[in-house]
Design a protein around this nucleic acid. Structure first.
Ligand SMILES: NC(=O)c1ccc[n+]([C@@H]2O[C@H](COP(=O)([O-])OP(=O)(O)OC[C@H]3O[C@@H](n4cnc5c(N)ncnc54)[C@H](O)[C@@H]3O)[C@@H](O)[C@H]2O)c1
Ligand SMILES: NC(=O)c1ccc[n+]([C@@H]2O[C@H](COP(=O)([O-])OP(=O)(O)OC[C@H]3O[C@@H](n4cnc5c(N)ncnc54)[C@H](O)[C@@H]3O)[C@@H](O)[C@H]2O)c1
Lengths: 219, 219
DNA sequence: TCTATCTTGTGACAAAATTCACATACTAAT
DNA sequence: ATTAGTATGTGAATTTTGTCACAAGATAGA
């Protein structure tokens, strides 16, 4: 760690395989650092950061160690610098183009969500099959027909698709956006989605979260 | 496994500590079994079930083994019976009383969500601070003021609170529902919540899911 | 009844994630 | 400068989670 090759912090770590959970925590750190920066806090230790997030300090350090050395012994981390590094790692230092498919109850909530557009994310399109929705504008985003979905996704250069449609239509729509070359999907539909390995799918499953809470109600 | 004491299937397994992930998967199995039952499929093997869910068959068996022996060697599992057993384990064989706090964009989507009321879950109350919301009815649920939140939660016998309010109000509201004796919280607010160990909190963090997807967009 | 064929349930193994604990390195203050 | 104090980064230990592989139990057909 004095002058070994992997001391080169500017290189994204393709070297090892990074656990999925580490990436999620990086995102968590990023948000907390944002808050700290906003409060004009300039430096923070792994201990303090982990206390704020309710976790273990060594885990924070280990997580960061996957990508380089960002801290200063005896001091901790500089908030702004660490935030910038994490954003670079997560690639949220650029604009991420999001397409929403399904502008029903959930889709509308998502469009209304300030944090959705927050910082790097930009909703470049919203699609729906219903004539009731097509042409309407929600929070500045105009709803389009799914007729030319595949072409539109391609043309708009969407990076991520957010899926909020009924379960029975999910797989067909996934097939379309996969053909359109999308590489990441945030799926709110409570159904398994089959697609090529290379495409990253994150499931958000409200039903599971709620139902599994029930288990812990036992006295 | 012939006549050991733990062969008693009717006892909920307090014996070992059950991993959180196991409980979530149980809920996943439950939903899939529901679908299978609906399609009049009467039996299924761990292999078939795991294929449907995109996972490993041994994991299915191990998960179930925490709670007893539900299968028939050479045959598999009887769908209805297994479903009933899992629901018993998850305690979704009774009514679960849910209180929603925060009837904004997200809260309204949740109220509209059929799957929310699905089966065992019943929304017994919705609360909001805004006069614009109080008194209005969404999907059959009337919005109440938070003025007597603590008493109401107690009186209504809510089991689970779903939190969908702005981050800055989250902790104060949590403190209230904790005092009211709630034991489980489904938290949509992107902020850490501090409460007694005994209370189970599940976080659903859309921001993290979206942001962490960004990482995988690297070519 | 016997046999061939399944599939379970689980002990043993492997992998992954988390936590510990400390040598090392920097700060800050005298 | 020197020193006392502090926090990093990381091997090693531990805990947790997932997979393998197979003996044993059950089916189904002859
Ligand atoms: N509402 C919630 O709180 C909630 C929570 C968790 C999960 N979900 C899931 O999210 C999905 C959407 O839920 P919702 O409550 O918004 O439903 P919804 O019925 O309100 O909205 C679905 C929308 O999708 C549109 N649609 C249908 N097929 C489409 C297609 N092929 N392409 C584009 N648009 C299409 C419909 O016209 C409708 O506007 C469902 O799968 C649901 O299970 C919803
Ligand atoms: N909308 C989304 O898609 C979405 C997605 C993920 C997370 N979230 C999070 O969910 C929360 C709610 O989001 P939203 O978009 O519905 O916001 P919103 O502003 O539309 O709704 C918030 C509602 O909470 C009410 N409220 C405020 N303080 C309250 C209190 N102390 N008790 C009861 N009610 C109170 C407000 O009157 C309002 O009706 C936020 O923390 C947000 O970050 C929203």
């Amino acid at each position: 760690m004095t002058d070994s090759p992997k001391n080169d912090v500017s290189v994204a770590a393709d070297e090892k395989k990074i656990p999925k959970a580490v990436i999620k925590r990086l995102s968590l750190y990023s948000r907390m650092l944002q808050e700290l920066e906003h409060k004009n806090i300039t430096k923070i230790s792994s201990k303090e950061l982990s206390d704020l997030l309710g976790m273990n300090p060594a885990k924070v350090r280990k997580d960061l160690a996957y990508f380089g050395q960002f801290g200063v012994p005896g001091l901790g981390y500089y908030v702004s610098e660490l935030k910038a590094q994490i954003k670079r790692i997560l690639r949220t230092d650029r604009e991420i183009r999001v397409a929403l498919i399904g502008v029903g109850h959930l889709g509308q909530a998502l469009l209304a969500y300030g944090g959705f557009l927050r910082q790097s994310f930009r909703v470049v399109a919203a699609f729906d099959t219903s004539p009731d929705k097509i042409g309407r504008t929600f929070n500045g985003v105009k709803v389009m027909s799914t007729e030319h979905l595949e072409d539109q996704i391609r043309t708009l250069g969407a990076d991520i698709v957010v899926l909020a449609i009924p379960a029975e239509n999910a797989q067909a729509t996934v097939d379309q956006v996969v053909r359109a070359g999308i590489r990441a999907i945030l799926n709110f539909v409570p159904a398994r989605i089959v697609c090529p390995e290379a495409i990253k799918v994150h499931y958000v499953d409200l039903g599971i979260e709620l139902e599994s809470l029930s288990y812990y109600l036992k006295d």
